[in-house]
Amino acid sequence: MRQIRAHWWKILGIAFVLYAIIGGLLMDAPRLAILNETIRNLYYHVTMWFAMMILMTASVVYSVRYLMTFNQDFDQKARIAAGIGIVFGLAGILTGSVWARFTWGVYWVNDPKLNGAAITLLIYLAYVILRNSLDEEQKRARLAAVYNIFAYVLLMVFLMILPRMTDSLHPGNGGNPAFSSYDLDHTMRLVFYPAIIGWTLIGVWMGQIRLRLENIEKQLQDDE
């Protein structure tokens, strides 16, 4: 019982992702031309981006808290959250490319949403490079936190705002409806939302393990 109380969110994450795998493949999905069965990728490809955005939001919150307190722990958490977010973002861009190949015919099109996603990932890779290129802990933390806020604003601009202002092939942009608006029976939402929460929780779990290992390492170094 104590175990369940301490780890309930991990169990919830596992359960939601399992449900997304099973329900996502077995439950009814809308029959749409061109997309056919690949519409089920909504449960897997789109959730990667949503999980990424939630993790990046957590990261920027930690960065702001770092700038308010100059507590090094917040800097560490911001870095780990952004790292997991990048993993999800890479998964999102690769799965999106595969999906594009079978619906649009090519792996990549010069589309505002796709290019925006690529730029966003590059911005976050630059965050990692910026961190690695600075040796002094305080300075690194401060610069990285400021850059992270800047990166988060660009993430919103490139993924959420710009694609909606121009024409885009990608659903949900430029007058192109997202799936939910022409999905009448809402069965997709029943899988889609839990899948986002599930993958986000798995990401948080991965980050938490990393955080604990780093703290163990730090403690060992302090003891020596």
């Binding site: 991990k10 596992i14 992702v17 399992l18 795998i21 099973i22 493949l25 077995l26 798995i202 779990w205 991965m206 393990i209 604990r212 290992l213 163990i216």
Partner: peptide, 25 residues
Amino acid sequence: YIVVAVLVIIFLALVVYLISLDRKA
């Protein structure tokens, strides 16, 4: 169902690995 079973097994294998890392920490 075979496809679903395979995907579930792969995911559970990764989860078991995560749990073992968690317990080791």
